[in-house]
Nucleic acid binder design. Structure first.
Lengths: 195, 195, 195, 195
DNA sequence: GATGAATGAGTGTTCATTCAT
DNA sequence: CATGAATGAACACTCATTCAT
């Protein structure tokens, strides 16, 4: 593994464990066992390093979700698969998830927003599924894109609550997520109005 | 307005805009136009200042939601009122909301966790409504407390997405929140399974 | 007891326990339970306070030793009495002793050296005793004043070693001081040169 | 001379002239004409710097005295040589002497006491000489180790009085020290009790 | 007599970054 | 590729002191 990768690994770890504000070039250098100066041979500056971190995280998420699109299931099943994958990714890669969704943009002022555009493709994917279900009268929605965003927002809420450990300790997170996901999907499904 | 209040206002702003790690006594002082030393006349130290910030935010939210509980409506209407109030508070007091729900606990190591317990009462309130609806067969849930948490998590996702401006610019946030809220409530309501 | 006295007591304690550098007006104020400002009603400034401390300490030592001069003993007994009193004072009032003899002059730059002149009277007293013994051929010295200083220097060495706890823990300080005093006096007494 | 040495020189000077409490990294830096930060390239922190100071001082004294032990003189001459060397060291290296013997332990809380143990060897050396003289009936002492300590304490008194300029200006310090040394040695030598 | 509010200077320390080698 | 030396700016915090009340 190259020094560049070592630096990325350690700084990701530090970013996750101590937060953005506490990432320090010197501390990274010490962990990787090189001089602080050496980091500058691989990254222009601190922001450049953090940017690399964000980029790789986004890519990882994108990959994880793209895999779910190849299925030939019906829209509801597709949606569930997507939701499952999204939550699974968040729980299994909380560091990357936080970097993407929970770090305030303002904390990385020099970060080019375009990079985040890549994430938008995920919503487009969601919107596509919803549109398909809408045509089949399976989903009761007005605007598929907006619905994609509301769907994702709800999933994000669930994920972030678990990741940031804001859940009551009496509630098992696995079951919580599963139930939440059911409620969320249920909220989109067409239904005979109760008599 | 007293200097103490000025300090609170500015530091709240700084906390929100730049994150915990970036709040600095000196910067606050500069903004408020006093010497850094003066802050220590009103707050024992940085942690004490931040704590005051959190406390007042939590109180504000608590007050806002308690007001909604006096209604004599049916459970569904109550739930909607609560959801509306919650989202309204988040949008109208994004700073306070962020302090309560979006600041990483790890970034405030010395903060006494008990204070956050006060928020739990909100979930109890939600759970109570859901339990009532459950008895009336209006809501289709298993465990009211867990459902309260999922409901809140979904609302939180919606609020946080709007507050942190992660919404697609093409989507009007007002409508987004209204639709999201509908979907969320819908997800809890008992329904004849579609044929 | 007046506030002025309270301040003196506490600051003496602080001076002794933590050293000159650590004496702080604020900390004194906190201990005495008044505002820091109040100290300035009784002392012009920090140096003025420290000066008062030194003055009272010197006075205390002077008083203790003057009492020993009224005796009508022979010079050797007189010298022993003085030595005993000096060491006794040092051990029983280590704080005052330190202030007088062990605090560096440079640490109190604004202190008027004349005050210390008062101590010189002690050496004059010693010199007087030695001169008396010299005339009686009891003491074998050249210059009584110089001998007074060497005598005192030796006593001071013994006292300071005990006070600053530089003695080997295996050595009981009482016996150490008693033996040291004997050696010191012995060093002045006229003797037949050993055969 | 390296920057490290420059820092040591200046901080030693400051330590002596103003006391422990007044040694400041920034002031040192200013004197040495570098940025305060640069000191941290050579010393981990302030304590580390002060420790280096103490260590080198102790070593210097140890070396100076060890040289005197090779002689094959009789015990009295040996003792005199030791006394001379000790006083000579104190006068010629007042800074180092003060660091070792006159700085309050309490002012250096984090300093590892073991380092000072090295000084104890000096007392052991003294005790050895005294024991030798005791066997030859040259010295009239009870416990050689305790006597070593009293001997040293007296020498220390003499040295510290001179170094801290507490001597009457009418008294030439050279002669004072020489006479004092004679008195001190005399106090240990066996003598026919005066008839 | 006593206080609260305020301040400028100072403390040790960490930071990102540069530069010559 | 890598480093050691260096720095200015920033950090939280403490200090002695002043002033209006």
């Amino acid at each position: 593994m190259s020094l560049r990768d070592d630096i990325l690994v350690e700084s990701r770890d530090m970013l996750i464990k101590q937060g953005f504000g506490k990432v320090s070039m010197r501390k990274i250098a010490k962990k990787v066992n090189v001089s602080a100066t050496s980091i500058y041979l691989h990254f222009k500056n601190k922001d450049d390093l953090l940017l690399a971190l964000v980029e790789s995280s986004i890519e990882k998420l994108s990959d994880a979700l793209k895999d779910q699109m190849v299925s030939s299931d019906d829209p509801v099943a597709k949606l569930e698969k997507m939701a499952n994958s999204f939550l699974k990714f968040a729980i299994e890669n909380p560091q990357e998830y936080e970097i993407i969704y929970m770090v305030r943009h303002e904390e990385m002022p020099k970060y080019p927003k375009e990079k985040f555009e890549q994430i938008r493709k995920i919503y487009e994917m969601l919107a596509e599924i919803i549109r398909e279900g809408q045509e089949n009268k399976l989903f009761q929605v007005e605007d598929p894109l907006m619905s994609a965003y509301t769907l994702w927002a709800q999933l994000h809420g669930v994920a972030s609550v678990v990741i940031s450990k804001r859940l009551d300790t009496r509630i098992p997170s696995g079951e919580f997520m599963s139930q939440a996901k059911n409620h969320i999907i249920q909220g989109f499904i067409t239904q005979k109005t109760p008599v």
